[in-house]
Write a protein that binds this DNA or RNA. Structure first.
Length: 418
DNA sequence: TCTGGGGTCCTAGGACCC
DNA sequence: TCTGGGGTCCTAGGACCC
């Protein structure tokens, strides 16, 4: 029988901030989304003060009890690096680790002796070496391991590890727990099920599989099979190649003019092209969108345009197509609040020197390699297309950004954690 | 004037996840 | 004054073809 583990960092972004800032330990702390907009990670102390996931920070801050809460702007290079450290601790100790998200990894524990004790040990070592507190769920399927992980987070008496390999344990929890706690069941699906009188996990697994398929399609049927202990989501060593690259932002200041919107979206296209090249890919489909603020009472306007393109990773080629599409979206008189560029139909980049490579594609590859080399050496954005401008009024607000302790030598002031 | 069924490809949109 | 930024998968429906 397969045995899956799921290890998940507790308040991961907050833990990463705390790893290098001892003064943040034991105090309520939140990490905010890109524009310092919403709380996206909260420590236990902050949760106890009633701060909700995704809550607009400017609203929370009005409450008297939240005045004392420490907060940080999000620092993704730091979190990515902490995630890598967590992975390395695990990969050295179990045969197979499958990263699922920045703070979660599935472990293949099949055939290993004394799994529960092993998981306690892994948890201790991730905390000691990578400075990340975690919880671990164990089960015969990924969905059950995810559920066990949630139970371990909620019940401190379990000491961070919950083992749901035993059918009797599952039966007990299934009767108590709402179906909405299950991975893959969101609010809409939970509401649909509630209308059918299905509330607990126990109710759900009793349904006939054909009925589940009718109501919730194949994805719902898969969730049910997994909860019944039948594994449908295998352990994957190589993550499937990614299908799309998106660079989207809400703006620090509204874009009112064509020039402002153009500069922002040009910068997004430039960044998207960099990501594409960093992964050795080319894009055959490009889409662009822009819209106004749905929250502030402005008239709602939203437009998008998409096009198939000759596969490329050339910044200038992507930029000119992006500008053409953006211009078709543009209507004067609106205050644009958010925009983005999305690349799809990703394929491995064709090698230069290939049979059909034209002089132009060779020239483009050389120019892009030089561009990337300069930016790697002197910092992102050192060399960039003129269309991205110099004003950068669209840039997000990030008022309390912690230093990039682990990835920028000049910002590595005092690394207390390692 | 009567009048088909089945396949593919593409896109938009919904739902979910972290 | 201030409300995230990525991703995935699935389905329905239209266009087109034979």
């Amino acid at each position: 029988m397969a045995v899956f583990g799921l290890i998940d960092g507790n308040s991961f972004y907050c833990a990463a901030e705390r790893a290098f800032a001892p003064e943040l330990r034991g105090v309520p702390l939140v990490v905010l989304s890109n524009n310092d907009g919403c709380a996206i990670a909260r420590t236990a102390e902050a949760k106890a003060m009633g701060i909700k996931m995704g809550e607009p920070w400017h609203l929370a801050q009005r409450r008297a009890e939240c005045k004392a809460v420490e907060w940080r702007s999000s620092n993704y290079p730091l979190y990515g690096d902490m995630s890598r450290r967590m992975y390395e601790v695990l990969a050295a100790r179990v045969p197979q680790v499958e990263p699922y998200s920045i703070d979660e990894m599935f472990l293949d524990l099949t055939g290993l002796p004394d799994v529960e004790r092993l998981c306690h040990r892994l948890r201790d070592e991730v905390r000691r070496i990578a400075k990340i507190p975690t919880c671990v769920g164990i089960g015969p399927t990924k969905t059950i391991a995810k559920l066990a992980n949630r139970i371990a987070k909620d019940d401190v008496a379990l000491n961070g590890v919950c083992d749901l390999r035993g059918e009797a344990d599952r039966t007990r929890y299934y009767a108590e727990l709402s179906i909405s706690r299950v991975w893959g069941i969101g609010s809409k699906t939970a509401a649909t099920l509630q209308n059918l009188g299905i509330v607990s996990i126990a109710d759900f697994i009793k349904l006939a599989p054909e009925q589940v398929r009718d109501v919730l399609t194949v994805t719902g049927a898969r969730v049910q099979a997994e909860l019944r202990g039948q594994s449908c989501l295998p352990f994957t060593l190589m993550p499937p190649p990614r299908q799309g690259i998106a660079v989207t932002r809400s703006f620090g200041q509204m874009a009112n003019t064509w020039g402002q919107l153009r500069e922002a979206v040009a910068a997004f296209a430039t960044r998207a092209a960099e990501k594409l090249r960093a992964e050795g890919l080319e894009a055959g489909h490009l889409s662009v969108f822009a819209h106004t603020n749905p929250h502030n009472g402005d008239p709602w306007y939203s437009a998008s345009r998409a096009a198939q393109i000759e596969p490329t990773s050339d910044t200038l080629a992507l930029l000119s197509e992006t500008m053409r599409l953006l211009h078709a979206c543009w209507r004067p008189g609106h205050r644009y609040f958010k925009a983005g560029v999305m690349l799809a139909n990703l394929t491995p980049a064709r090698q230069q020197g290939q049979m059909f490579a034209t002089r132009d594609t060779v020239k483009s590859a050389r120019a892009m390699a030089a561009l990337d080399a300069v930016n790697a050496r002197f910092g992102r954005g050192m060399l960039r297309p003129a269309a991205t401008g110099t004003a950068m009024a669209w840039k997000s607000r990030q008022a309390q950004h912690s230093p990039r302790y682990t990835t920028r030598a000049e910002e590595m002031l005092v690394a207390t954690a390692f």
